[in-house]
Design a binder for these strands. Structure first.
Length: 427
DNA sequence: TCTGGGGTCCTAGGACCC
DNA sequence: TCTGGGGTCCTAGGACCC
């Protein structure tokens, strides 16, 4: 940990999911738009017009029904196939500007600019912003600083302050002090609501005040994580660029049901489907899992009726990525934990102890013919591709799927399905 | 009356992120 | 009536051992 000459740029897509929808429907420009979470449950993306109406991130849709009606807010279900594809296009564009890049999330990337030959980081950022807009249609903001935490902070201000036109460089900047003064601790990267409360209780409100607080109290009350954040505010780099992310450790497929599941056959279908999706993800990562957990739960918000949560974890005889084997174990667990008379709201399959696929230790009494299973899975995956529409699937995953998660306002898969391509007509 | 101490490993749960 | 999903890391505390 030391002061360095890094220049971190955080590039963040503005209201990403909303912007994706706008690219393909110009009618949405300037209008209030929200995108909902799975099952059309919560608001997960808001256009500026909606933010101005005071709609908070994560609110349940049913709480803002009146507002939607009154302001004619356009409502979209989430379309992850579309957003994932748009994300890839944005990232590909960014990669042309800086060789050292970390894709931090679906809509954010850190770039290292100190090693990039250019007139100034600011000019580069402007050019990058314009190029991404031109090539993908997505508006982005750029924050630059000596550490990732400060770059995040810069980006936050760039987004909110019209004067910046979406680019703010706080590298050795006279504005840094003011930026820190204007930022509340709760808006810092790494400071969530619990930590913010703790800090506020001590009488500290601003990022600047937090930066100037003594290490002893920080370490004792906020742990090493808090201390790192404070160092980063001082310009001491604790988080480097992770251009090649370490292998994933766990993986999950969990979903809320479109309507409550009350029968064991329905629950078996759902869990089998989640297990098969988990298997496909696992193989895409070229990994195998040592353990599997299955859980079922009723609605936690529900006051009446029986409440039930249960889960079981099993260890596979040999780490596996075989869908049939995973479904088999998943169903056994389901039989064990399912309780008749409960209205289940959600279930999930979690895989842990992930190891590289070709690194699996064999087992003398392994009941499964591994080479054969590998070939079968490979064939299955090549037929199904990455499409969420599974052409070939296990019968156990159901046909009607009456319990399936709802998406009542989904936009077309403009970029990934031939039959849903945007049509352009003249005249 | 007075009941060690310190190390390691593992796990569950909390906090955070988007 | 209606409240998402998928990750990471850290820490406290228990089990176990000598």
């Amino acid at each position: 940990m030391r002061k360095t000459n890094n220049i971190f740029a955080l590039v963040d897509c503005n209201n990403f999911y909303v912007s994706c929808e706008r690219v393909f429907d110009r009618r949405l420009e300037g209008r209030p738009v929200v995108v909902l979470s799975n099952n059309d449950g919560c608001v997960v993306a808001r256009s500026n017009e909606v933010k101005a109406l005071g709609v908070k991130m994560g609110v349940p849709v049913f709480q803002i029904r009146d507002l939607i009606e009154k302001h004619k807010i356009e409502v979209y279900s989430s379309n992850y196939t579309l957003y994932g594809d748009m994300s890839r296009r944005v990232m590909d564009t960014l990669a042309q500007f800086a060789p050292d890049m970390e894709i931090y999330s679906i809509d954010e990337a850190f770039l290292e600019l100190a090693s990039v030959a250019c007139d100034s980081p600011d000019t580069l950022a402007r050019r990058l912003q314009a190029t991404v807009k031109q090539w993908t249609g997505i508006p982005v903001s750029v924050g630059m600083a000596r550490t990732k935490t400060l770059a995040k902070l810069a980006n936050h201000i760039a987004k909110k302050s019209a004067r910046t036109r979406g680019v703010l460089n706080l590298t050795d900047s006279p504005w840094l002090e003011e930026a820190l003064t204007r930022t509340s601790v709760g808006d810092l990267w790494g400071v969530g609501s619990a930590t913010a409360r703790k800090i506020n209780k001590k009488g500290i409100e601003t990022a600047r005040h937090l930066r100037d607080t003594d290490d002893g109290w920080i370490r004792k009350s906020l742990g090493v994580v808090g201390l790192r954040t404070v160092y980063e505010l001082r310009g001491i780099c604790c988080y480097g660029l992770e251009s090649s992310p370490p292998a994933q450790k766990g993986l999950a497929v969990t979903r809320s049901f479109g309507k409550p599941v009350e029968s064991l056959p329905d629950m078996r279908e759902a869990v089998a489907l989640y297990a098969s999706r988990a298997g496909a993800k696992l193989r895409r990562n070229r990994q195998a899992a040592a353990t599997m957990t299955v859980f079922v739960m009723t609605n936690l918000f529900q006051k009446t009726g029986p409440r039930h949560f249960d889960s079981r974890t099993i260890e596979f005889p040999v780490p596996t990525s075989d869908t049939a084997e995973m479904i088999d174990y998943a169903l056994r667990i389901t039989e064990e934990i399912f309780r008749p008379g409960c209205r289940y709201k959600k279930a999930g399959v979690l895989l842990e102890g992930l190891v590289p696929e070709d690194n699996v230790q064999g087992h003398l009494f392994d009941p499964i013919d591994r080479p054969r299973s590998r070939r079968l899975m490979k064939t299955l995956d090549s037929i199904n591709g990455r499409s969420p529409l599974e052409r070939i699937r296990y019968a156990a995953t159901g046909v009607n799927r009456s319990w399936q998660t709802q998406f009542r306002h989904r936009s077309p898969q403009y970029t990934t399905a031939w039959h849903e391509l945007l049509q352009v007509s003249s005249g």
